[in-house]
Amino acid sequence: MAMGAPTTALFAALVVAPIGITVHYSLNDVNFLRDEISWVGFSNYAKLWESGDFRHALYVTLLIAAASVVIPNALGLLFAVLLDAGSRLYTTLRIILFAPFVLSPLVVGLTFRWTLANDGSLNNALEALGIPGPEWIASPNLAVVSVGLALAWQLIAFATVIYVASLRAIPTDLYEAASIDGASGYLRFRLITWPLVAPAVTITTLISLISALKLYDHVVALTGGGPGRSSETVGLAIIRAGFTQNRAGLASSMAVLLLVITAATTVISLRVLRRREVEL
């Protein structure tokens, strides 16, 4: 194990220990400016429970997480079926389609801010079709939708490429045999494609879930958490409490809660999805 020591030490000092310190801070009032720390038990958690702002941030985060699991999986599989072909055109299109996933979330957020502005390209296009465009970023509900769209745009790109790789790995003679046996297109999808892309469902779901629960960059670039605090996520709330307001104790209690939610949802989805993979 000696060769594993450097990584293990780094990981222990800069990931494991900080988690412990976060839990410790969450049970204290922490003031870095005056270098003071005092035990307060669970009162930070009680404050979270009472805070309407934090409950809203939690609601926004979970809503986006739910949408980020459903939409990229559904559209990713759909686009993958469309793009699953061998010719050079389709290979090129797949390379293009994946590009959004490698772009900086800040750049994605800023271009969406530009596109979704009141006089932006989307509303101009809607107007040309005779539909009055809504205020995407300035209205509290649509601001949340806008943030979700920016994230989904990157995740759909990711999902599509993962599903294409998964589809390409399915042996074609399975489909041929099923066709000879007279299976319809729907049956072939239901009995061959859907079970065999199960590992792609797992990885897309996990990546989407984790990206949505830690959402920060897209929001900062697109809405800044506004209007008011209507599109603020838990990630934003943690950084604001911890750095802007110098309330590291309160921020840490949010962090612990986010960590518990992330661990619980990923472990549960992993169990459910892995079982589906095994049953094939």
Binding site: F11, L14, V15, L213, K214, I239, F243
Partner: peptide, 20 residues
């Protein structure tokens, strides 16, 4: 244990990482 690092959101640990 190291697998749990895969799901860790950065905002969760940045304050203590700065302290460390």
């Amino acid at each position: 244990v190291i697998l749990f690092g895969l799901i860790l959101p950065t905002p969760v640990i940045l304050i203590p990482v700065f302290r460390v």
